[in-house]
Design a protein around this nucleic acid. Structure first.
Lengths: 133, 133
DNA sequence: TAGTGAATGTTATATTTTATGACATCAGTT
DNA sequence: AACTGATGTCATAAAATATAACATTCACTA
């Protein structure tokens, strides 16, 4: 499903839509960007344009904040996450099978710990209901 | 996949995004709406908000126009289409199996004919590339 | 307790985007 | 040539967004 990933990464949503989908204020969304938690693209007129992946991440951020993490903590989580992803890529390039990699990743998770996977986005129909009145 | 359909029908895209995704001008998009080919919702500020389904339909409309149909013809196509959908629903309500309905629909298509299924949307990477510069 | 900082609210100003309506153009038809 | 359908273009008004500054709230702590 390469196609699907493409669509999820397309920057097509203005901040107003993202506000409704996430129930965050523009202030919050811009602040999280300033803290390097998200990096929306800009259109020709300098307006921020968000992808569905951005929305997912914002919902994650909300969950983490609700869980008592602060911005620094969330940044740390994402740093670890991308470290793991990088290592996975390196392993795949070295010719390891996918299930090999899965085993390695499991070990890493066990050793590091504390990386609760946040609840997946779009679980909550409320976010949908808030659209268009 | 009820969830997916929900997302595809959510009105989240402003007209500027739709212009890029479809390579249509705002004038064209509003004109097709005026001709009742699409019915985007409006947000609190009266701005048109489009769904991915709307984008699909606009790409269909473009294909039909390229094929030489005029607006009236396209309207006719969609009228037939919704008639078929209605009949399908009625049949399902009457307790027919899904495969029964499929057979009936096949017959109908054969009898009516000329209803070329338009190329599915998002086939063309060009539409994606036009986003954000 | 006063002070500090993180997260967010609020307000003002400038720019961009969109809506609407009118008039113009252009190709195809009669 | 006149007519029509589809689209372009322009003017005007309103809505949405960007940016920056200042305010507030709350938890923590010296």
């Amino acid at each position: 499903m390469r196609e699907k990933e493409l669509r999820r990464s397309m920057s097509v949503l203005p901040i107003g839509t993202v506000m409704k989908l996430t129930d965050l204020t523009a202030r919050q969304i811009r602040y999280y960007e300033q803290q390097d938690l998200i990096k929306p693209l800009r259109n020709e007129g300098n307006r921020r344009m968000y992808s569905l992946n951005d929305v997912d991440r914002l919902l994650e951020i909300k969950d983490y904040l609700d869980d008592g993490l602060n911005i620094s903590g969330i940044k740390e989580v994402y740093k670890k996450q991308s470290q793991l992803e990088d290592e996975r890529k390196r392993n795949l390039e070295k010719g390891l099978t996918d299930s090999d990699v899965r085993k390695i990743l499991q070990d890493e998770f066990l050793n590091i710990g504390g990386l609760k996977p946040p609840s997946s986005s779009f679980d909550d129909p409320n976010n949908l209901n808030k659209l268009n009145h």
